[in-house]
């Protein structure tokens, strides 16, 4: 956006937990070796510090951020700081009701991973059956205008 030396975007890797096992993934899967996750309070403090450094965009990523039960609270905290918040997700596990809650909490947009345009290769790359759920999530994202 500019060559100016400042922060524009914070990418928050909220957890390493993930329901997928994508063949290309570079995140750790040996979770026992990475036991420490930041608490809700810690993340909210990090968001505030990032905003003070100039960050305007917040990418909520992982792992799978939906596996954090406090995601709604984190989104609401980001919204209170006027962030443009983007959920980077596999779409699993997600219900339409939870996506509505996230939008109500102030989520700006959703970036949904799809491993292939065909179900077979997509599920194979993701390491589990997931393609149909992703299509369903994509429909909710469009319907709720989160893209």
């Amino acid at each position: 956006m500019s060559t100016e030396d400042r922060l524009y975007t914070l990418i928050a890797e909220l957890t390493y937990l993930c329901p997928l096992r994508c063949v290309y993934c570079s995140n750790p899967t040996d979770l026992a070796a990475h036991p420490d996750r930041l608490s809700t309070t810690d993340w909210l403090r990090v968001f505030k510090q990032a905003a003070e450094l100039g960050a305007l965009q917040l990418n909520l990523s992982g792992g799978e951020p939906l596996l954090r039960r406090d995601l709604e609270e984190l989104v609401a905290g980001a919204h209170a700081l006027d962030f443009y918040s983007n959920l980077i997700t596999s779409g699993l596990p997600l219900t339409r009701e939870r996506l509505v809650r996230l939008k109500t909490a102030g989520l700006s947009s959703v970036q949904l991973s799809i491993q292939d345009s065909d179900p077979g290769p997509s599920d194979r790359l993701a390491g589990r059956e997931s393609f149909e759920q992703k299509l369903e999530v994509a429909r909710w994202v469009k319907e709720l205008e989160l893209r």
């Binding site: 956006m1 100039g54 305007l56 965009q57 443009y84 983007n86 700006s108 947009s109």
Partner: peptide, 18 residues
């Protein structure tokens, strides 16, 4: 929204800003 660092408005959208 207003960008407090520059006191200018910025139009934010996925992964970009104007």
């Amino acid at each position: 929204r207003l960008d407090p660092k520059t006191a200018k408005y910025i139009l934010l959208y996925p992964e970009k800003g104007l």
